[in-house]
C-alpha cells in the first residue's frame, strides 16, 4: 500500500519535471538545464529546512523562486543560442552545479544533504496532534502518505491547468509563433527574447519546486541525483509522451515511471530492457504518443455527440 502511494507520488513529481521541460520546448528551445534548477530547488529547500527550520510549505516555493531568479539572467545569456548549442550550454550549467555541490561544505559534498525533514513524517506528527486514529481504516503512516500524494497530485494538476490556460492566452500564442518560426514571430512584433526567457524561467520554477518536493520526500539528496541522467530523463518523458500537448509529458512520466518500477523484477536486466524499450518507442512513434491531431479529433467527436446533425459541418 505505502509502496504504491510512494510510486504514485513520484509519478506526480516526474510529471511536474516533464512539464518544466515542455514549457521551454513550447518555445522551440531544447534545454538540459532543468536538472540544474532542480538541484538548486532541492538544496535550497533542504538547507532552509535543516539550517533555518523553515516550514515545508515555505521551503518548496522558495526553492522554485530561487531557480526562477537564477534562470532570468541565465536565459538572457543562453537563449541567443540555438538547438544543440543551447542544449549543451544548459547541460554545462547543470554539470557545473553538480561539481559545485560536490565540493562545497554547506551542501555536504559528495555525501549530500542528510536528514532533510520529511513531508510524510511531518504530516504524521501533525495529524497525531488532533486525530486519535487515521480515517478510512488506514494506519497513520499510510494516511500521511496518502495526503502527501494528494498534495503532489494537486500541485501537478495546478501546474497542468495553468499551462493549458496559458497556452490559450496571448502568451501561449506567442510561444507557438516563436516555436513555428522565430524570425517571422519577431517580424510580427513579438518580443521573442522576453517570451523565451519567460518560458525558461517558468520551466526553472517548476523544476525547482519538483527538486524541493523531492528533497522533502526522500530524507536525502546528493549531487549525483541531478546530473546528466536526470536532465535526460526529463527530456525522455516529454519526447516519449509528446512534445506538442501538455498532456504528453505527464503521460510520458507516468508511463516510464511505472515501467521502471515494473522492471524492478528484472533486476540486473532492468536498465537493458528500459533502454531497449526507449529505443523501440521512439522508432515506432517518433512524434510521441500524444499529438495535437488526436485532441482535435477528440474535440470533433465530442461536438458531434453533443449536437447530432451539426457535427458533419465541423
Amino acid at each position: 500500500m505505502s509502496y504504491y502511494l510512494q510510486v504514485a507520488t513520484f509519478i506526480c513529481v516526474s510529471g511536474i519535471l516533464g512539464l518544466s521541460v515542455y514549457l521551454v520546448l513550447s518555445t522551440g528551445q531544447l534545454t538540459l538545464g532543468n536538472a540544474g534548477f532542480m538541484l538548486l530547488g532541492g538544496y535550497t529547500a533542504g538547507l532552509l529546512a535543516i539550517k533555518l527550520g523553515w516550514p515545508l510549505w515555505l521551503t518548496v516555493p522558495a526553492g522554485g523562486l530561487l531557480a526562477a531568479v537564477v534562470a532570468v539572467p541565465l536565459g538572457a545569456a543562453c537563449l541567443r543560442l540555438r538547438g544543440v548549442y543551447l542544449a549543451v550550454a544548459t547541460l554545462g550549467f547543470t554539470q557545473s552545479l553538480v561539481v559545485i555541490a560536490n565540493n562545497l561544505t554547506i551542501t555536504g559534498g559528495a555525501l549530500g544533504l542528510k536528514d532533510i525533514p520529511n513531508l510524510g513524517t511531518r504530516l504524521q506528527r501533525y495529524f497525531r496532534g488532533f486525530l486519535a486514529e487515521a480515517p478510512f481504516g488506514l494506519t497513520m503512516a499510510q494516511f500521511a502518505n496518502l495526503v502527501v500524494l494528494l498534495i503532489c497530485a494537486a500541485l501537478l494538476g495546478l501546474a497542468f491547468w495553468l499551462i493549458v490556460r496559458q497556452g490559450q492566452s496571448r502568451v501561449g500564442r506567442a510561444f507557438t509563433a516563436i516555436r513555428t518560426d522565430e524570425v517571422a514571430a519577431s517580424a510580427m512584433g513579438i518580443n521573442t527574447t522576453y517570451y523565451k526567457v519567460l518560458a525558461f524561467a517558468q520551466g526553472a520554477f517548476l523544476a525547482g519546486v519538483a527538486g524541493g518536493l523531492m528533497a522533502h520526500l526522500t530524507y536525502f539528496i546528493g549531487p549525483a541525483d541531478f546530473g546528466f541522467s536526470r536532465a535526460v530523463e526529463m527530456l525522455v518523458f516529454v519526447v516519449v509522451g509528446g512534445t506538442s500537448v501538455p498532456a504528453g509529458p505527464v503521460l510520458g512520466a507516468a508511463l516510464l515511471r511505472t515501467l521502471s518500477e515494473y522492471l524492478r523484477e528484472a533486476k540486473d536486466l532492468r536498465l537493458i530492457i528500459y533502454g531497449a524499450l526507449m529505443l523501440l518507442m521512439v522508432l515506432v512513434r517518433p512524434q510521441g504518443l500524444l499529438t495535437p491531431g488526436m485532441f482535435a479529433g477528440l474535440g470533433r467527436w465530442w461536438q458531434r455527440r453533443r449536437a447530432p446533425g451539426k457535427g458533419a459541418a465541423v
Binding site: 529505443l279 521512439v282 517518433p286
Partner: peptide
C-alpha cells in the same frame, strides 16, 4: 517529418543498453 529530438532519445536508449 521526424523531429530531431527523436534520434537524441534513440541513441540514449541504445547507449543505455550498451552500458548495462
Amino acid at each position: 517529418g521526424v523531429s530531431n529530438l527523436a534520434p537524441l532519445i534513440s541513441t540514449i536508449g541504445l547507449g543505455m543498453v550498451l552500458q548495462n
